[in-house]
Amino acid sequence: MTTVSAPVVEPMGLHSLKVVSNASESPDTSTIVLDSPGITFHAGQFMMLYAFGVGEAPISVSGNPHSPGTLVHTIRRVGPVTDALCGLRPGDSLGVRGPYGDSWPAGEQGDDLLIVAGGLGMAPLRPAVFEAMANRSRYRNVSLIYGARTPADLLFKDDLVGWMSTSSIDVAVTVDRATSDWWGHVGLVTNEFSRVDFRPESTTALVCGPEVMMRVVARSLRDLGVPASSTWLSLERNMKCAIGFCGHCQFGSDFLCKDGPVLSYDRLAWRLGVDEL
């Protein structure tokens, strides 16, 4: 099983794109839609977004790979660049490079597809859900497990409601903190493994979230019998050039911008336990 990369015609080429809309997802997270004629991407890839005069940040594409003409990015405010990006208004311009990196693998025909997202990790996995729904006959069963801190922190609530209303995908949503009016589950995402249908030996698992959470999820899946080579994680480091030259995103023997960000757990397992790597 392999990942694929969409070719970047001009690796350092900067497009100036206009913001179509900016909507708040949660108290600290916004989704911006960009008018991007001619730019295509695969689920799991990222772009370098440049807030003019402030700086550049790597941001995963969170939109539908089958909706050409727009790029969607979901951004959490963590510093000056993401503050500036979240503050963009319709009609404003920003610079965009990419797409970069590998995509989520499709998995084998007839496999079960298990998507496990934690927090903002739902953003790079949302395109994978769209991709799976567009190719639903490829899989026996498709499941999404999504964990967040509180119900207010859940992203893409309209999508979740829509996916829950179809029989094409099993959706389990869980949070860490809630009151008894919360309709979903409370607990760690691994608690939800028993509530969705997948055959461990024939499952492709796509996982994105905080690294400690991904490690716990990957180990739990391994213990259930999912091969480490079939569990895929999306990692992020301090990406600068995005084309494997500068070395800022080096993670052991990989440059995550070029060799990742999506890598299989069998390649990553030992490195995820190394302090300060």
Binding site: R76, G118, G121, G147
Partner: peptide, 16 residues
Amino acid sequence: QTARVRLLDLYPGAPG
């Protein structure tokens, strides 16, 4: 084990 992981309050640090 899951309670201990939840004590870490992981999600604010999720990547994007």
